[in-house]
């Protein structure tokens, strides 16, 4: 019954355009995500809004992670260990919805992305596996 952990983890990396939140990513992005969590109180949101860079400097993150947060570069933040549910605290503080934030990662405009979702979403065809190409 038990799946081999190495095979399991290798398969997770085989999906196009997808960074599964494995423990490796979680460790890399620990402080990005803990920072994002801190925005769940109004007091911290106010401090963040008042001076984003100063607030970020309180957290032991890499400069690259800090810059990606300042840029709201969610796609890059996923590469740097961020997780969308944590990052949601950042875009919610910006008064942006999931749809607005997620659309920025697709190379599409918000309107085009929204229209794609209304006409049935993105087909999985050709996007299931990098190695098998289906």
């Amino acid at each position: 019954m038990k799946q081999d952990i190495h095979e399991y983890l290798a398969e997770l990396e085989d999906i196009p355009g997808t960074r599964v939140y494995t423990t490796k990513r979680a460790r890399k992005g620990y402080w990005v995500n803990q920072f994002a969590m801190s925005l769940m109180t109004k007091e911290n949101r106010d401090r963040w809004r008042a001076d984003e860079k100063a607030y970020l400097d309180e957290w032991p993150m890499t400069e690259e992670q800090k810059q990606a947060l300042l840029d709201r570069d969610y796609d890059k933040l996923l590469d740097l260990g961020g997780n969308i549910y944590f990052l949601a605290k950042v875009f919610s503080t910006d008064r942006k919805s999931y749809l607005q934030a997620v659309s920025t990662m697709t190379g599409m405009s918000e309107e085009d992305y929204r229209n794609m979702m209304l006409s049935g979403g993105r087909s999985p065809e050709g996007l299931r596996s990098k190695s098998k190409g289906y």
């Binding site: 999906i15 960074r19 796609d75 996923l78 969308i84 979403g121 993105r122 087909s123």
Partner: peptide, 17 residues
């Protein structure tokens, strides 16, 4: 049910599945 909230594959929907 089907949804993806990240990367270039975001917006994936698989109604048949």
């Amino acid at each position: 049910m089907s949804h993806q909230l990240q990367g270039t594959r975001a917006g994936l929907i698989n109604a048949e599945w």
